[in-house]
Write a protein that binds this DNA or RNA. Structure first.
Lengths: 193, 193
DNA sequence: ATGTTTCCACCTAGGTGAAAACTT
DNA sequence: AAGTTTTCACCTAGGTGGAAACAT
């Protein structure tokens, strides 16, 4: 339940499927990205608490570039090694959770706010809705945001309402990953939760 | 754009895919229901106008039993004929549109509020969420409701908030159908919209 | 040759129409 | 035997891992 918070207030976010993520963190740490976009495995699921029930919030996610290095998987030792300098840190438009906007009651009633529709891609040419563009072979960490918006806000306008200076956030060390376009570690398997 | 309204106010609902529904009304008028639930074809899609932008509404749908007769498809003439008395008129819990609750802005921004997830069933034993239970071989008409609710309402509580006396409604003659468990009319085909 | 990306056949989940089964 | 219901194989859409292709 690693949690930092940006903005004071009692808002808390807890990463679910903690065992799965721990295993991921120990064994693999690699996340596939493809041209057409690939879903994350494991899926980021969080439990959100401490919202004001009647207020309206949107929830969104972005990937924090941990550094500007490039990584390579080295076979004899089966470890990730630094392999030079990567792309400079950039800002991408966050992925807005499809249930947004919704009231505090709704977000908290849900046992798990899941980002299972999110896709990761390396296709820089066309920006597709629902996909986050990342650089290959670089290290990222998942970060989730909760931001209050006006009750009348609608889905289409949400991207313009993103204001990270007035939002709560949490990032989860277990979700740190290195982007690949094909699995490097052969131990990687896809068991369900 | 057949519209009746229950409650005054400028709320209007228009049935979309009118050509498709007209063809349905002229050629077929039969709707499949199965044990496990079957989606409607055509799908009910409506355009909603005249809501107060900032207010919160839920939208739901029910099936009005047109009469208590039982119908049979007679082949030589290829027509539906009355074939005796059916089940008495009953009340079923309405199907709440999965986007509920949402603000007036959101409902009106959508070019078509579609009930494409709705399933119709003849399975009276277990009441399944997302399915409407109907009697076979009887005649029904689709009716759509719009009801204002408090901003803090959440999905799980909506069924208890249904109050048809304080809701707008519209029913569409073109959507009148007779329930069957297998197609009677061989001309029935499933072209897309 | 090695490291990286794209492509593609497999697999799965779920919806559909028609054959099979059931009923009266 | 006719009418009605259920079952089931086909089809489709979309996600996945490994094979093929590409690049350095």
């Amino acid at each position: 339940e690693g949690v930092d918070d940006g903005c004071g207030g009692g808002v808390s976010m807890q990463l679910l499927q903690y065992d799965l993520w721990t295993k991921f963190h120990n064994l693999s740490t690699e996340m596939i990205i493809t041209k057409n976009g690939r879903r994350m495995f494991p899926v980021v699921k969080v439990k959100i608490r401490g919202l004001r029930p009647e207020k309206t919030y949107m929830v969104y996610l972005d990937m924090v570039a941990v550094d500007t290095r490039r990584y390579r998987y080295v076979y004899p030792s089966s470890r990730w090694m630094v392999a030079g300098t990567g792309e400079p840190l950039g800002q991408h438009t966050p992925y807005i959770h499809p249930d947004s906007p919704a009231t505090g009651v709704q977000w908290m009633a849900s046992p798990a706010v899941a980002f299972d529709r999110l896709k990761l891609t390396n296709n820089k040419t066309r920006e597709v809705k629902g996909q986050i563009i990342l650089h290959s072979m670089q290290k990222y960490r998942t970060r989730v945001w909760v931001q209050e918006v006006e009750a009348g806000a609608c889905w289409g306008d949400l991207p313009h309402l993103v204001d990270q200076t007035h939002a709560h956030h949490a990032s989860f060390p277990e979700t740190t990953f290195i982007t690949v376009t094909a699995y490097q570690n052969q131990q990687r398997t896809g068991e369900a939760s």
